[in-house]
Amino acid sequence: MPAKVLSPQSGGWLSSRHRRGFTNTVAAYAFLLPALIGVFVFRLYPIALSLVKSLFQTSFVRGTTFVGLENYRVLLEDPVFWQSLKVTLLLNLAINPIQIVISLAVALLVNRQGHIVRIYRTIIMLPMGVSLAIACTLWRIMLDPNNGLVNSILNAIGMASQPFLTSPSQALWSIILIASWKGIAYWMMFFLSGLQEIPDELYEASTIDGATHAQQIWYVTLPLLRRVALFVTVAVTSANFLMFVPMFMLTLGGPNMSTNTLMYEAYVSGFVYFDEARGMAITSVILLILLIVVLFEFRLLKED
């Protein structure tokens, strides 16, 4: 009997192959299942829920009623929403290129052998070990406008003290600094592993062809880093669009709403002002913007 099943001429062989294919598919999905459940429960379901809830409004007196797109209409007329949108876009226009370029540059610098480099690499990666909440607290102490470390250094080199987190014109940049201090180390790791995957032969060949170091980076390294760069770009963008901890811990969206991002505004609406619907509407807007930006990034960095 087994011979018949395995015979290449018989239909049994084909069905067996199909069956094996089918079994493999089932097995693959079975292995994926825990992750898929996670994606559904922690990602898709909350997204769907927030979309639905953004269509309702709750009054403490009248209860919950369906209002359609009313929450979105109110948002569009709300100066606080526009201010938060402006801050969010400004933050992302600045922080994403800064983090990507610097982490790539640092990865290129430490992508070589040797003890000293290894020590540097460790030092650069140290911020990764500090949670963002603790990093914020440390930086708040260092950026203290009265007697913080940073101002002491500025004074020592003859510069005036800066207000940093207490000034509407500097607070957002201070947050960019803090988030990047931690973020760059993290994203650098991905670039570094991407760099180490590039075969040495390619560099050798280009050396024989007479390429300079700069030309090697431009013609060999960067094209081969494209996939990693795409991942890092998309991940950096979504991480920064959803950034929340520094606003929550350091500025509460101030001074003068200068750090009031959409994410923070959504949190405040939902958890401080009990306006769940407005919070949900804002998160849906963030999602939409993020989707557009990420699609754009995909097109830009897509491999031909």
Binding site: S167, L252, G253, G254, P255, V272, F274
Partner: peptide
């Protein structure tokens, strides 16, 4: 009160910072 307090705190903090 919760909303009132949160928003007045932010206003006071802004005034303190120069608004």
């Amino acid at each position: 009160f919760v909303e009132w307090e949160d928003i007045t705190i932010k206003a006071f903090e802004d005034i303190r910072n120069g608004t």
